[in-house]
Amino acid sequence: MLRTIFLHTAMNTASLLEKHIWGTMPEKLPDEVSVPLPARIRLSHAYFQNLANANDIDLLHVKGYAFGTEVYAPNRNSTDVDLLVRPAHVARFLYLLKKDGWRSLTTFESGSIFEHAATLYHPSWGLTDVHRYFPGINFYDQAGAFEKLWEKRRLKQIAHFDCYVPQLVDCRNIVVVHGARSTGHGLHSDVLHLQRTLTDAQWQEMRERIREFNSEIAFDAALGDIEKHRGNRQYLFWKSAAEPTPLPLQWLGRLQRAEGLKQKLHVLTNIAEINDDHLAMTLGHEPTHQEKRHLFFERFERILRWKNK
C-alpha cells in the first residue's frame, strides 16, 4: 500500500525563524500528491535491486533510465522498468514480486509475439517488464546469453543505489536489437542516435560482441540489412518484426523460428488462441465474448483479403 507523505519542511533562511513552519510536519497528503514518474521509475530500479540482493536473484537493469544518456539521446523519457532476470531465477522472482504486492497484467505468453516479458504493476512503483530473455540476443540459448551478459556486468548508481547493468557495449547492442522490433518505416530513433554519436571503431566493437551471441540477424535487421540473412530460419521472423508484414507471413516467420515439434505446436496454439490480456489493453476493458469472437474470425478474413490481393 502506498503511503505518500509530504514532510512540510519548506524552509529558507528567512522562514526558518518562523518556528510554526517546522511545527507542521509531518503532514499527510492524499496519494495523488505523489512522486513524478521519472523519479518513481528511478526509485523502483533501486527497489528491484534491493529485493534481488536480499534473495540472491541475478538480474540486470536494461533500457530506460538504467542506460540513460550513456546510450540514449538526452531528455528521453521512460514509462517503466525493464529487468532481465537469469532464466533459472525468473519463477522465484515473480513469486517474490507477487508476495510484495505486484499484480500481473500480462504473462510471458500473452505479452507479445516474442513471449519474452511479463508486465506487472504495483501501486507505489508503477509498471515493470520482467524479461526472461531479450529478443534478438540468442533466442536459442537464453541461459547462456544471460550468463555472457552477467559475466561483464557493472554497477551503476540509479537513485543513489548500486544497480547491476550490462557493460556499455552490451547496452548499446541491446538498444540496437530492440530497434529491430519497431515495425516502422526507417530506422528506430534510438539506433539513429547511436549512428550519429558512435565512431566506426565503436560500431566494430559492438558487431564483434554481437557475434559472440550468434545474434547478428536482429542487429542487422535493426540497421536495415536483414536481406543479408535471407535463408536463415529467423529471417522471416525478424523481417516481419522490423518491417510492416502481412499477418500470415508473421505467423510463418514465428513457425520457422520455432525449434522442434513442441515449440512449433506451441506457436500454432498461440496463433489460434485469442490473447485476452492484449485485447483487454487494446480495448481498455475486459473483452466480451462477442469481441473475442469478432477478433478470432477477423484474422481469417485478413488472410483471405491478403491471398486475394
Binding site: M1, L2, R3, T4, I5, F6, L7, H8, T9, A10, M11, N12, S15, L16, V33, S34, V35, P36, A39, R40, L43, S44, A46, Y47, N50, L51, D100, G101, H122, S124, W125, A159, F161
Partner: peptide
Amino acid sequence: LYLANLLTSELLVLEGSG
C-alpha cells in the same frame, strides 16, 4: 528530494530544509 524506503515501498517528498 524524492525518497524511498525499499523495504516498505513507502515514498516521501522532502522540500526546503528536508
